[in-house]
Design a protein around this nucleic acid. Structure first.
Length: 584
RNA sequence: GGGCGAGUGGCCUAGUUUGGAUAGAGCGGCGGCCUCCUAAGCCGCAAGUCGGGGGUUCGAAUCCCCUCUCGCCCGCCA
């Protein structure tokens, strides 16, 4: 059953009707028509742009077209002319019936598109494993994971992956710090910063070693030489050094994975940067680039690409792809990585911090130079800053995601305790966790990625209004009603759902698939929480105004509407990576 | 110096791609609503020169030009 088409069909009927009338009035049949969905009608068509060709005021045109139309016809139940607009009303009974029928038939597959066969790759998170994930970069896994979930609902074959940076001075320093920094130095670092992080988690413990190492290197020539030596060995393929770095990277990554998992984020695949060196893939990129006419070599031997013809602006349009000693650079290896992703994907999306804009542009230019047809689609997000400024792992100016999750869960626990005395302790804890994570994820994904955000505890821990817990609450409410109702016979008879609250709610439910397409295919992830909030708010209004369990003849129909709302909200929450608790 | 992004009530945000009716929400504030299905809720009130200035248009938050503020970037770092 293809029900969602009711709205589409209605639109088409309106358009056809207006076109016919226009021809009768002497306008060309291909006149472009603007369609809107306002509050006071189901579809509106403004007539202002017709005024030129018909040489009449818009209001008169609207009047004349309205007079020409034969209504009701099909799904159109009414048309009025107002202020130069044609306002159409749809057969709400058909919409209500078809929407509820489809939702009850499809259940959790409601809104899901048929398989498209399109292979979509979403790279996200990919944070350097030098410390715990902090809130400044937390947008990445949350946006990336939400996007991947939406794309799956759009019917695509989605692979998510994390590009693990285990190459370079930064990670060498990390490894050096773990083996050489003493407990006394760690203690001193804690005293100096005045902040102790006593969480027993590998990434939280080892980040002190990294911080001490980055501080020491400035005034310790011996250490500086040791690091340089390790980097040289690493670049030369010394297995012991490579394994040492890789071992530490794995440990840190383990901690990061734990955090992600707590946020309901899991990735399908991890690609290690060092593997692109080992496989020779990075080397091949170098050879391919060298052979192009844009390649050049500096006096000391470093190779670069001149990108001035590719929209790269600034002081220096050269993009260096090998060091003087011939070793590869980050972006060179990233090129190899992208070629690998292209070989197994039809669409490649990179969720990146806004500091990667130039790098991404250079990468695309280099791909073009190599005559690679495919291009990654970057999705940039601005960093979340603290009121006192940008977050920094090295400086210790951070709020860790683990701490945010814990704080949110603790607050949620207090809220539950206030209103429920019937639940066992472990149940309250479990629900609190779901609500805490829901609040955090929702709060971050609700804002368009390009907006710069300042992190504030009171906003991140918001459980009211436009928040994750608000949606969860409505879901729990609906579940509670259904529990109390017991078994009932589904009823999609629109004659029993004529209240304005019921019709508005049903129409909102019908819009889920469109929102999913926009959130997924157009990467407008932040539309999803907005939609969820709208549905939840409409449900709460319905709930406040319309009795359900005591509804007499309409009881089953209203329960069906409650069940459908529950299904849609559960689907929305699932796409947001937020649990849908049955009670709270 | 240059490139890219952001600027919408006290705070935060949607809408900008594809120009249309009185610019939607939320938080905070003020005032109502639990003898009824979860009050993490509902209803109402106050609060907006859509950063500023030009322009295009019947019509601009939306398009064009100029300008101001903030963020990010302009390593042979990753």
């Amino acid at each position: 059953m293809i029900i969602m088409k009711v709205l589409e069909q209605f639109e088409k009927e309106c358009e056809d009707a207006v076109r016919q009338a226009l021809v009768a009035l002497g306008a060309p049949a291909d006149t472009p028509l603007v369609k809107e969905i306002p509050d006071n009608a189901d579809l509106a068509i403004p007539c202002f742009m017709l005024s030129k060709s018909l040489r009449k005021p818009p209001a008169a045109i609207a009047q004349e077209i309205a007079a020409q139309l034969k209504v009701p016809a099909g799904l159109i139940t009414g048309v009025t002319a107002l202020n130069g607009y044609l306002n159409f009303t749809a057969d709400s009974a058909a919409i209500v019936r078809d929407t509820l029928t489809e939702i009850t038939e499809k259940g959790k597959d409601f809104g899901k598109h048929a398989p498209t066969g399109l292979r979509v790759n979403v790279e996200h998170t990919s944070t350097n494993p030098t410390g715990p994930v902090h809130v400044g970069r937390a947008r990445n896994p949350i946006i990336g994971d939400t996007l991947a979930r939406c794309l799956r609902m759009c019917g695509h074959d989605v692979t998510t992956e994390y590009y693990v940076n285990d190459v370079g001075k930064q990670m060498v320093m990390m490894a050096w710090g773990v083996t050489n920094v003493t407990p006394a130095e760690v203690k001193q670092e804690i005293e100096e910063t005045g902040k102790e992080d006593d969480r027993d988690k590998v990434d939280h413990r080892l980040v002190y070693n990294y911080r001490v190492a980055t501080k020491k290197i400035h005034d310790d020539p011996v250490m500086e030489e040791q690091i340089a030596e390790m980097v040289r060995k690493f670049e030369a393929g010394d297995q012991a050094t490579i394994d040492q770095v890789k071992g530490i990277t794995e440990k840190m990554l383990g901690g990061i994975k734990e955090t992600l998992s707590a946020m309901n984020v899991t990735l399908d695949r991890y690609t290690w940067e060092s593997s692109l060196i080992a496989s020779g893939a990075a080397r091949q990129i170098v050879e391919r680039l060298k052979a192009t006419k844009y390649a050049g070599q500096a006096a000391d031997g470093a190779w670069f690409l001149d990108l001035k013809d590719f929209g790269i602006h600034g002081k220096n349009t050269n993009f260096t792809f090998t060091r003087a000693d011939g070793t590869t650079l980050y972006t060179t290896r990233d090129l190899a990585y992208h070629l690998d992703k292209f070989s197994r994907s039809d669409r490649v999306i990179d969720v990146l911090g806004e500091d990667q804009k130039l790098g991404s542009q250079q990468l695309c230019a280099a791909l073009k130079i190599m005559s690679v047809e495919q291009k990654p689609e970057p999705l940039f997000y601005a960093f979340v800053a603290l009121p006192e400024g940008r977050m920094s792992t090295r400086k210790g100016v951070v709020v860790y995601l683990d701490d945010l999750i814990d704080e949110a869960s603790d607050r949620a626990y207090e809220e539950i305790k206030k209103r429920r005395n019937d639940l066992p302790e472990n149940r309250m804890r479990a629900i609190a966790r779901q609500i805490g994570v829901g609040a955090v994820r929702y709060n971050i994904v609700r804002v368009a990625p390009s907006k710069q955000l300042v992190f504030k505890w009171e906003e991140a821990l918001n459980f009211d209004g436009n928040s994750g817990p608000y949606l969860q609450y409505v879901h729990a409410r609906a579940c509670s009603m259904l529990r109390k109702a017991g078994t009932f016979e589904r009823d999609t008879d629109p004659a029993k759902l004529t209240d304005e609250y019921e019709i508005r709610l049903a129409k909102a439910l019908a819009g889920f698939e469109d929102v999913l397409q926009d959130a997924g295919n157009n990467m407008h992830v932040h539309q999803l929480p907005a939609y969820g909030h709208k549905v939840a708010a409409l449900f709460n209004q319905f709930y406040a105004e319309v009795p359900v369990l005591q509804a007499g003849a309409s009881r089953n129909a209203r329960l069906t509407l409650v069940e459908c709302t529950k299904i849609v909200l559960a689907n929305v929450l699932d796409c947001l990576g937020i649990a849908a608790p049955e009670e709270m």
